[in-house]
Nucleic acid binder design. Structure first.
Length: 468
RNA sequence: GUCCCCAUCGUCUAGCCUGGUCCAGGACACCGGCCUUUCACGCCGGCAACAGGGGUUCAAAUCCCCUUGGGGACGCCA
């Protein structure tokens, strides 16, 4: 086989959504797996809806995901001369013609056809007229009236279309601009794209495009149509199902590798394996294992996978990635050994970076604000003495080590006759304000002698106040 | 309405092509238990599916047909 050349052709009319990202991933992965080429092309022929902001957003999302491209980005809006050339060619060869039917008449025909149970297609009014180029004329492709067109889909298998179901679709608008089905084919031919993996929703476009390839006398690429991504209610994924843009997941604290892993695994499988790194994916991805059924986007599974990827990421790297999330909650932390220690206590307890930042906040707090339930349950008179004893014991320790701390707690256990559990919880609340946290020795060490004693003191004072 | 696609636990899926090893395996979620200074992690166990009906066959989740259900496409959008 020759070099595989795939492409991703988003239209810049919004952010990159997870469905689009998934097809980008399939194409990119296939190119990388086969040591082929991946081309990025921006389909901005709809001047009214395309924006530079969307173009930027798409680049940003692709880069975040770790998808790079070997060629492009090409912009269709800059390729009009090429399209014009091909339109002229089709007219010359008799494969296309000018049509002056008004949009209004077409629209009413369509409505009528649908209402009467007919296939809404162009009736061919101008097909045989051989009209000259004129102000308001569009260009239509002259599609065959009979016969069949075969789509040999690598994912779905063979699909046969009756040509009489197709119609003479428009390839150039009245203002001269080319339309989608046409530019896609011209681009894919001229960019030598030989493998097209795209969403299911393009299946019905494919016979038209195949006809165009034939009329343009170009070899057919390999087509593979992947099933769609659906929302919880099995309808097409949209905003009302929750976040759909790739960058939204970035902002919620998901790792790019987790999103990549999840998206690819949704509709593709490799035996029972669930966890994949980027390199795993490149190594193992194949078109063969793409499923045929649509899949539902499940944020819970993504979240679980994200937790796995967090655990697989070196703490040093996580610390760096955590910074913006800490910043967002008003914590100006610095990267370094201190933060790495903190991260290490939190990896097992955080499913997202956002969660991790939340969980880390007590390490940085000036004063601890107690959760009401936590304080009520543990900061009671019965705990006062233990806290006081611990304070005394800790103040004699030079440097906090796990061993030191354990001894200090032991001495408090002996003096009070309380079990560790009875002591640890009030201390936990004193140090974190909450009933759940990383190990008590760990956090004590990280928070440090000065602050620990300060917080214990605060707790003792609190207990004294409420007892009055 | 017309055309096209799809159909295994709630969800993602393995198995289907090359029928028997499947009274269907894994993962997420959920429910128990263990571990334990809390919460997590981890470990152990549990719940839970071949949409229905016909064929073909000694034998069907696997092959064929129909029904049903779901999705998609029918633009001078992409």
């Amino acid at each position: 086989m020759n070099t595989i050349i795939t492409r991703f052709p988003p239209s810049p009319t919004g952010y990159l959504h997870v469905g689009g990202a998934r097809t980008a991933l399939f194409n990119w992965l296939y190119a990388r797996h086969t040591k082929g080429k991946f081309v990025l092309r921006i389909e901005d022929t709809d001047a009214a809806r395309s924006t530079q902001a969307s173009v930027d957003a798409i680049f940003e999302a692709l880069e975040w995901l770790g998808i790079d491209w070997d060629e492009g980005p090409y912009f269709q809006s800059q390729r009009y001369p090429i399209y014009q050339e091909h339109i002229d060619k089709l007219i010359q060869t008799g494969n296309a013609y000018y049509c002056t039917c008004s949009p209004e008449r077409l629209e009413s025909m369509r409505a009528k056809a649908m209402a009467t149970g007919k296939n809404p297609k162009y009736d061919g009014t101008c097909r045989g007229k051989d009209l000259p180029k004129s102000e308001k004329a569009v260009v239509r492709f002259k599609a065959p009236l009979t016969g069949t067109t075969l789509l040999e889909d690598v994912i779905k298998g063979n699909i046969v279309f009756q040509n009489d179901e197709l119609d003479d679709f428009i390839i150039a608008r009245s203002d001269g601009s080319p339309t989608y089905n046409f530019v896609v084919v011209v681009d894919d031919i001229t960019m030598q794209i030989n493998t097209i993996i795209r969403g299911d929703d393009h299946v019905m476009n494919t016979p038209k495009q195949i006809l165009l390839y034939q009329a343009l006398d170009a070899p057919l690429p390999v087509f593979g149509h992947v099933p769609m991504v659906l929302g919880k209610d099995r309808s097409r994924l949209s905003k009302r199902h929750g976040a759909t843009s790739v960058t939204a997941y970035r902002d919620m604290g998901f790792l790019p590798e987790a999103v990549m892993n999840y998206l690819v695994r949704l509709g593709w499988s490799y035996g029972d394996q669930e966890f994949f790194t980027k390199n795993d994916l490149i190594e193992k991805f194949s078109l063969k294992n793409i499923g045929r059924a649509a899949g539902i986007f499940d944020q819970e599974k993504l979240t679980a996978l994200n937790a796995d990827h967090i655990q697989a990421t070196p703490p040093e790297k996580l610390a760096h990635l955590l910074l913006p999330f800490l910043e967002k909650s008003g914590i100006h932390a610095k990267p370094g050994a201190f933060l790495v220690k903190i991260v290490k206590t939190l990896v097992q307890r955080s499913k997202t970076l956002e969660e991790m930042a939340q969980a880390a906040s007590f390490y940085f707090a000036e004063t601890i604000i107690y959760e009401e339930k936590a304080a009520r349950k543990f900061l009671k008179p019965a705990a006062r003495q233990a806290l006081q004893f611990l304070m005394d014991a800790l103040s004699t320790i030079e440097t906090f080590t796990e061993e030191n701390l354990e001894n200090a707690f032991k001495s408090v256990m002996e003096k009070t006759g309380l079990k560790l559990g009875k002591i640890a919880q009030p201390v936990r609340v004193a140090l974190t304000g909450k009933t759940a946290s990383p190990g008590i020795f760990e956090i004590t060490e990280i928070i440090g002698k000065e602050k620990v004693i300060q917080r214990l003191k605060q707790a003792v004072t609190y207990i004294e106040q409420i007892t009055e």
